[in-house]
């Protein structure tokens, strides 16, 4: 009885061994391992380990000289970030930035896209022009607009004066600085959203319009009843991308205003950057990053839930 069992299992084990050898010796396996191992190592060391480390740092008073001696402070870092004198200010500024971007970018991108979609001739040309600012370096654009918008010697104010219009101090004024920055950022990025929305519109099959025409829908009716609902998904995508991008705004205000005047353009990511790399307070910086992560992660999950079922290329 026992020997019989042994006889039965022995060839099975041998078969498994042979199969394993066959797999291991196959060219696919070797090639696969050569790609898979470094990929997994990279994602472990440059993503997952860092994320875990980020969580750990957020509850430590990090000791730069000797990291092993870092003290556990619980939620102390979160408390210290939230009590930071610029925390509320930076959160408010960042939310205002997002809101203003929505107000400027969504309707404008929509109108430009509709205009583009109705054209056959020249569409490529206009698209290429409007997309140009998105392609070029943000730092170069920032310097360019800092020159153009200079309160005293800027070309924009000179232009306004020449036309007899009222001038503005733009970046130097506490009330105008934030809208000016959002204007520059929108100018830079609107082409991207226009391309997305136009692509969404042109993807609507012609048959739907033909069917609508038979039913007597044309012009504005056609737009509101057919085009608009069909591109609602693209709109949603644009809105989500815009939210994620604007909540992480840094470069524009860092370069154009350094957060000023009087912290009117001090963004959340500047607070994070200053805590981490100016004051070397790694703990509070990690806590601040974690708070931001929660918000952005929630938006991303929402995006997956709303958009994933129809996601395609």
């Amino acid at each position: 009885m026992q020997s019989q069992v042994r006889q039965e299992t022995a060839p099975t084990l041998a078969a498994i061994g042979a199969r394993a050898r066959r797999i291991i010796r196959s060219p696919q396996f070797r090639f696969g391992i050569i790609i898979l191992l470094p990929t997994l190592l990279f994602y472990w060391f440059f993503h997952y380990k860092l994320i875990l480390e980020g969580f750990r740092l957020s509850v430590l008073r990090y000791n730069i000289q000797d990291p092993a001696k870092s003290l556990f402070v619980g939620l102390g870092n979160f408390e210290s970030v939230m009590k930071h004198h610029l925390f509320m200010k930076s959160v408010g500024n960042t939310l205002s930035w997002s809101l203003l971007s929505f107000v400027i970018v969504l309707p404008l991108a929509m109108i430009i896209s509709i205009s583009l979609a109705t054209l056959e001739r020249m569409r490529q040309f206009y698209q290429a022009c409007i997309f140009l600012p998105y392609v070029v370096s943000l730092l170069a654009v920032a310097l360019l607009f800092k020159m153009l918008l200079d309160a005293e010697v800027g070309q924009v104010n000179r232009f306004l004066r020449d036309l007899g219009l009222p001038t503005s101090r733009f970046l130097a004024s506490t009330s105008a600085a934030l809208p000016t920055l959002v204007g520059v950022a929108s100018w830079k990025r609107i082409g991207f959203y226009v391309i997305l929305i136009t692509a969404g519109m042109l993807n609507i099959p012609e048959e739907i319009y033909d069917a609508a025409l038979v039913d007597g829908a044309r012009g504005w009716t056609r737009f509101w009843k057919i085009t608009f609902p069909l591109i609602a998904r693209t709109q949603m995508l644009v809105g989500i991308l815009l939210a994620i991008a604007t909540l992480q705004v840094f470069t524009e205000s860092f370069v154009l205003t350094e957060g000023g005047p009087a912290n009117a353009t001090y963004m959340y990511n500047m607070l994070l950057y200053n805590e981490a790399f100016m004051k070397l307070r790694f703990g509070p910086a990690s806590a601040a990053a974690l708070l931001q992560f929660i918000v952005i992660f929630a938006i991303s999950m929402f995006q997956l839930k709303v958009l994933e079922p129809k996601w395609e290329y």
């Binding site: 440059f46 994320i51 480390e53 994070l272 981490a276 910086a285 990690s286 990053a289 952005i296």
Partner: peptide, 15 residues
């Protein structure tokens, strides 16, 4: 892809 760069920025700098 859902992780904002700021979350890993400090640990990445230390690394």
């Amino acid at each position: 892809m859902m992780i904002p760069g700021t979350l890993t920025m400090v640990p990445l700098y230390i690394f």
